[in-house]
Design a protein around this nucleic acid. Sequence first.
DNA 1: GTTGACTGCTTAATATGTTAGTGATTATAT
DNA 2: ATATAATCACTAACATATTAAGCAGTCAAC
Lengths: 161, 161
Amino acid sequence: MPRKLAYRNLPQLFLKAREELLCHFRPIITHFGLTEQQWRILRTLSEMEQLEPREICDHCHILSPSLTGVLSRMEEMGLVTRSRVPEDQRRVIVRLTPKSEKLVGELGPLIVAQYKIIEQAFGPELIKQLYEVMDKVIAAERGPISRIALPPKKDWSAIEA
Amino acid sequence: MPRKLAYRNLPQLFLKAREELLCHFRPIITHFGLTEQQWRILRTLSEMEQLEPREICDHCHILSPSLTGVLSRMEEMGLVTRSRVPEDQRRVIVRLTPKSEKLVGELGPLIVAQYKIIEQAFGPELIKQLYEVMDKVIAAERGPISRIALPPKKDWSAIEA
DNA sequence: GTTGACTGCTTAATATGTTAGTGATTATAT
DNA sequence: ATATAATCACTAACATATTAAGCAGTCAAC
């Protein structure tokens, strides 16, 4: 007896909508030999001058273990530099290189141009609505939302039938 | 000279908003030893009875190469069965098992309960707006949106400085 | 009935997501 | 001062994302 849940899968809708947007930018980014995450970092660094890894994690929504690898590869490619903070040997400062600044200088305008095209196609009101709704969702703090009680844990992977 | 682009990073906003939502469901899903993708598949199969792999890819937004591994693991766990279509040996039918149907029967109501809590916290209007805006974005077909012209390809990873 | 194009799933290779844990460093509380 | 806790980046292990390529099965034209 197949039964639909009362609510549509909202996170999945986000996924789909995001992909619908991203597919218009991905060709531009890959054209320059970058991944989506690498571009997020380059763009953020070009706006913030210098950042520490955990700040990049926050701004770019990349988890710390992933970032380690991403930064290593970007360092190899000569896109960023990593230097320790003298007064706190745990911390690291990440900066753009002249090369990556030039890259952002070329890539950025193309991204903006694509945004304009999308704005035309979607209509400026939809874009505005998008930003509004997103900001509302993000503004809803994670804390105050209560969590349902979970039943005792069963090891389903071990249950026979 | 750090300069901000004219547009905020919209796909990144989607990512953040999605995570803001998902973090309220993730504990429920992992409590049952499932991954997010596995739950997407279970939920969809429980609503559609039976599906072929490429249909699952479409519905759940999982790329075909990923799905191969996901389904293998789910088969190992006894959550789904895979059977060939006799009249077309290329195609495969994926179904839930009695075990996974029972699992969905326990998990589903918890998900719905969490949606209700979120609806209270966000306000029903915001949820409604969300569905509306998402559907609008998704409705905007990928085809008609034109693509900007890309400059000749440079191999940035090989450029010195 | 063979050839050639196509479809559907899989494999391969690399990059990232996710959770847990480690080691070194710094801050805090005795 | 010293033990403790907290912080930060990193490693490890596994799952998924992404792109490209492979391979068997089907279909259509000839």
